[in-house]
Write a protein that binds this DNA or RNA. Structure first.
Lengths: 183, 183
DNA sequence: ACAGATGTTCTGTCTGACAGATTATCTAAC
DNA sequence: GTTAGATAATCTGTCAGACAGAACATCTGT
């Protein structure tokens, strides 16, 4: 239930390929996958999985917004949001209420039960995060959080993609005479 | 081509839900997605995408191994490995050679062209990594790499899952009378 | 009142992952 | 030496998730 990134044995493999330069990507991958694993465990039985939690959390944030707003905010397709909300509503965590000013739209409200569950889940996730950093001593842990945070906030404004594709081009051109047949 | 994690607008959304506690998960997600984006750009035209690169790199490592060995090493399904290698072979990057001692098995050998491309891709990836950390000053960058590396190497031996599921249980039990019909 | 835009849902399509069957070959027991 | 079961690679069919586009209801501006 809720795979998302799956793969665990991949880890030691990735170590192989990039071991040369104390690979950043490998370490990032390992940590991120562990994070996913742990959070997936916490959120496994939430109707939409991690996605469901995000919707719930996002809906609980400000005043109730429309489905579409929610979908765009979370970067999920509108059609996906539909059955994501179906599930959450079926579980009694949110409600679709008619928008008083626009009869096309529904405003997503978190129910009391939803708030309650959300609070507990959020706490669990906090614990899980802490657990994940368990192998670091306190100063390292703080440092890591700080730098990671800084990196994350600044990384948005990156050159979209520097050069990159130059190598790839060559692959499809030099290898063997272009004997690509159909597919 | 090669989505994997997709979503970019998700970022500001995730910020909403976990902003409370300077969310680790959010930061990790942002950084990891950026990493994927950058590497995907570099590896976009490699036959199997990032997966193809991993296979190539892994095959180039030791002496040529069988497909199955490769698959297990990388944590991909054997049936997937088949057409992954189909693509790489079609592009002239690897060859399936008959195993002299076992006519069932094929040993995957990287061609000269494959080695060449691999070297360039690896270099590009290294640059991409560096670029990703561009917003950090030198000491921070080094610190980050160090701690992340330490975290990654120690994280494997984590309690598989501490408690976790306790909250989730309650969701499917307390919400509304169990009026789940079918699906 | 009408044309076009917008919110939600539905339908159909496509892709990637995987289980299981298939074929060829190996290994071990008889 | 032959036969039974294991194993490498491949092929086939199935399934879930993601999404595009249609459909429907409703809004907004003219």
């Amino acid at each position: 239930m809720v795979p998302e990134i799956t793969s665990t044995p991949c880890d030691d493999a990735a170590r192989v390929c990039g071991a040369l330069d104390a690979d950043l990507g490998w370490a990032l991958g390992v940590v991120f996958r562990s994070y996913l694993k742990v959070t997936n465990a916490v959120l496994a039985d939430v109707p939409g999985g991690p996605r469901g939690y995000q919707v719930l959390a996002s809906a609980a944030g400000g005043r109730p917004g429309t489905q579409l707003a929610l979908a765009q905010q979370l970067g999920v397709d509108r059609t996906v949001m539909t059955y994501l909300l179906d599930d959450l509503e079926r579980a009694g965590l949110v409600e679709r209420r008619p928008d008083p000013t626009d009869r096309r739209a529904r405003r997503i409200a978190v129910t009391g039960h939803g708030e309650e569950i959300l609070a507990r889940l959020t706490e669990r996730l906090r614990q899980a995060e802490e657990h994940l950093l368990g192998s670091l001593d306190d100063p390292d842990r703080a440092t890591f959080r700080t730098i990671l945070q800084r990196l994350a906030t600044r990384i948005d404004d990156l050159d979209p993609t520097p050069d990159a594709c130059t190598v790839a081009r060559e692959i499809t051109e030099t290898p063997t005479p272009p004997r690509r047949v159909s597919a």
